[in-house]
Amino acid sequence: MSDWQDRIDAVWEAAAGGVVDDDVITRIDAIAAERGSDDAEAAFARAGARDSAGRPDEAVPLYRRALELGLDGDRRAQATIQLASSLRNLGDVGGALALISAEQDAHPDSAYRDAIAAMHALALASAGQPERGLAVAILALVPHMPRYHRSMTAYAREIGGGDA
């Protein structure tokens, strides 16, 4: 891990359990500025600070910029989940669903597949499709169950109308 990332992590550690406010944003922004405006990691850090402070409208363009500039697999997945969450919170459920569906299709074996499925389920519920959301959540849980894979998969498909 780089010194730069260690310093970002230290800001988050200091803020753990507390309110993310202007001070946290200012501290993250100061560290991010060291890398310039064309750095994906810096844009991602800035977006996360705003998102955590309850400013999804400010976070969305920064997440989009980070993804545009290119993030590695884990960071890309995290930025996608966080962007989809922000879009959902801003009422753009369709945008959130499109983003999450594209991530699932492009990276089905992602280490973040369960978190992606959870975001998908939340977005579906927000879109007025709670049954499909429940089906997505159940299907994400199936691989973690010691038994009942076949029956739970069948139930999920039934609840979700066959397209979960």
Rank of each mutant, 00 (worst) to 15 (best):
D109F: 11
A135D: 02
E131F: 12
A40C: 05
P143F: 06
L97G: 01
G18I: 11
D6P: 08
T26K: 09
R113L: 08
Q5G: 05
D23Q: 14
R147E: 13
P56D: 02
Y148K: 15
E158F: 09
A140S: 14
S151R: 06
R88V: 00
G91H: 05
A111T: 10
V60I: 14
A42L: 03
S151F: 15
G54H: 05
Y112D: 08
E34Y: 00
R75Y: 07
R27Q: 15
I116S: 00
D105Y: 13
N89P: 09
V20F: 06
G162P: 07
D114V: 09
A84I: 02
A14D: 13
A45P: 15
A14K: 14
A164T: 13
G54Y: 05
M145W: 13
L67A: 09
S52M: 11
I138Q: 12
G128R: 15
E58P: 04
Y112V: 01
R76T: 14
A79F: 07
F44T: 07
A117T: 15
S126F: 04
I138G: 05
P146W: 03
A98T: 11
V93Y: 00
L99C: 07
A96L: 05
R132W: 02
A47F: 00
R147T: 09
D3H: 14
D39V: 13
P130K: 14
D29F: 03
P56A: 04
A96V: 13
T153P: 01
D23G: 14
G73R: 15
A156L: 02
V11L: 02
G73T: 06
E41H: 15
E68Y: 04
A117Y: 12
W4Q: 01
E158G: 11
G161H: 15
Q82N: 08
D29K: 10
A123T: 03
D57I: 09
G94P: 03
V142C: 06
E58L: 07
A118K: 08
L134K: 14
P61V: 05
G18R: 10
L83R: 07
G73W: 06
G94N: 07
A125K: 06
Q78D: 14
A164V: 08
P61C: 11
T153V: 12
R157N: 07
W4K: 05
Y155T: 14
A32C: 04
L139W: 01
D72N: 09
G18C: 09
S86D: 12
A79V: 06
A135E: 00
S110Y: 08
D51I: 02
F44C: 06
T26M: 10
R88S: 01
A30D: 13
R65E: 13
A49S: 12
D3T: 08
T26E: 09
H120M: 13
E58G: 11
A96F: 01
A140I: 07
V60Y: 04
V19C: 05
R50I: 02
L62V: 11
I31V: 04
A14F: 05
L62K: 01
R75M: 15
R132T: 03
P143L: 05
A123S: 12
W4A: 01
G128W: 10
I159F: 14
Y155N: 11
D105K: 10
L71Y: 09
I116K: 02
R76F: 12
